[in-house]
C-alpha cells in the first residue's frame, strides 16, 4: 500500500497482542500462586537419623 497504513495496523495489532500476552502471563502466574491451596504440612521436623 504505502508503508504508513501497514505500520499503523501493525502498531495496533502488535501492542494489543503484546498487552494481551502480558495479561495472560500474569494471570497464569497469579493463579499458580493462589488456586492450588496446598497446605503441605512438611515442617522441618527432626529426622529419625538425628
Amino acid at each position: 500500500m504505502n508503508g504508513y497504513v501497514e505500520a499503523g495496523y501493525l502498531a495496533v495489532l502488535g501492542v494489543l497482542a503484546g498487552y494481551s500476552a502480558l495479561l495472560l502471563g500474569r494471570s497464569r502466574k497469579m493463579k499458580k500462586a493462589l488456586l492450588p491451596v496446598k497446605v503441605k504440612e512438611k515442617r522441618s521436623e527432626p529426622g529419625p537419623t538425628e
Binding site: 504508513y4 505500520a7 499503523g8 502498531a11 495496533v12 501492542v15 494489543l16 498487552y19
Partner: peptide, 14 residues
C-alpha cells in the same frame, strides 16, 4: 492508557 498510547501512535503514523 494502552489505547491512548495507540491513539497517539496511529495518529502520528497517519
Amino acid at each position: 492508557v494502552i489505547f491512548t498510547g495507540l491513539t497517539l501512535i496511529t495518529g502520528s503514523i497517519w
